[in-house]
Design a binder for these strands. Structure first.
Lengths: 224, 224
DNA sequence: CGCGGTTTTGAGCTCAGTCAACGTACGTGG
DNA sequence: CCACGTACGTTGACTGAGCTCAAAACCGCG
């Protein structure tokens, strides 16, 4: 696993399909969540597990002194809360970054399905394993990369996750990115500028970006 | 979950007892691992899952450019590798920090037991959930605390995990602590010195330490 | 067109990294 | 037993990446 392959939620969605049967609209409520709304507050009782069907959420941790860290972003297809099934209350907050459509399935129902259906159990374990992998990749990145490289890795991952050509819209603001990458809002902004000036990304306004594919500097051109 | 309650492996061992039946000596090999030895190399095929019965291991990630990050330490009672069950090869390395006694149980057997025994399944899921919680706490700490506070939080956690009075022996060296906390070896050393001079820890040589209980500065003494 | 929020840019400062020297503990072999 | 070597830890001087505070620019919207 290279740093640039660090995941936001890609393989999580690859495995989440194993849980399709559980997150049917028959088993839970379909919620329409406006941007900024809190889906689950830190400390609140865990009642449901969510599947994101549209939009983007951030997973936040608030510390005693009011600081916020974002430990992950998740987009359509991701399942949120499998790691909370044995907790009485949420130890993270789940907040909509953009307008979201979410299926909320009662925790007890999810637990029963895990008990009853070995495909569901397998899917849930794979999702948890993916989450561990994501957190570890995040941790490694935070420890090693300088600011601009972190921002570039973040944008690359985001772009790969979307796997679409052309400019992409970033749903989250600079502060969110900063809280995710362990940088100040200003440093994130400066990194955007630096990457643009280096020709490694293109920007349209503050929200739209495109990764410029770069030659791998480690490739030895003498071979050509 | 406060930062000072951040876990190395405490609750992991609380849940690992649910898997006692799987990690019986009858089901796997008991290994005697000298300090420094690699239990599982990054990239190596996943053949076994381990339970640490004595000693301490570090979970490492090596990047392409040779840098090392430590994503966790685990002590007696912890189970290592449940997050690797669906991976062909280890995406982390497991290395003995001190002399260890380890039970290695074949991956296929663990998978079968998870399939067959719902207590085992439940235990495995709880262990995975704990691991996510640990990684998230680690991530939060890395993003927020300055160097000395990180070292103090690390030592506090280590001490709570051991839950013993008096001086404790740190099995890992300064560089290991640095790679875990995202600090250089020198900064870790300076933090030890600073904490000692502040009277927040006591040291006997480089390896033995004791946390000095401190008054919570946020307590308002006018109330007394 | 003006307003509020977000982003960008600038200036100064600080914490932690690097490089380098020195200290300390331990094990080996003369 | 002591001299030596090696590995680890500590300390110092210097440097620089990123933080803070502050101001300006930009954008969407009523």
């Amino acid at each position: 696993m290279t740093l640039s392959e660090q995941k936001l939620s890609k393989s999580a969605t690859d495995n989440a399909y194993l849980l399709t049967s559980v997150f049917s609209e028959l088993n839970g409520a379909v919620l329409n969540v406006p941007a900024g709304k809190v889906l689950a507050a830190q400390g609140e009782d865990v009642r449901s597990v969510f599947r994101i069907d549209r939009g983007f959420v951030r997973i936040c941790v608030y510390t005693e002194d009011g600081a916020r860290r974002i430990v992950g972003f998740s987009g359509a297809g991701s399942i949120i809360g499998l790691d909370q099934l044995n907790h009485p209350s949420w130890n993270v907050a789940v907040e909509a970054v953009s307008h979201c459509v979410v299926v909320a399935v009662p925790k007890a129902f999810v637990n029963r399905q895990i008990e009853a259906d070995c495909r569901v159990r397998d899917g849930a374990m794979r999702c948890l394993q993916d989450e561990i992998e994501q957190r570890e990749a995040h941790l490694v990145m935070m420890g090693i990369l300088p600011s601009s490289e972190r921002v570039h890795a973040f944008l690359s991952t985001f772009a790969k996750l979307r796997a679409r050509e052309g400019f992409l819209v970033l749903p989250m603001c600079r502060r969110d990115i900063g809280d995710y990458l362990g940088l100040s809002m200003e440093t994130v902004s400066r990194s955007f500028t630096a990457l643009r000036e280096m020709g490694r990304i293109e920007l349209k306004g503050a929200e739209r970006f495109r990764i410029v594919e770069e030659q791998d500097a480690s490739v030895d051109h003498r071979a050509a």
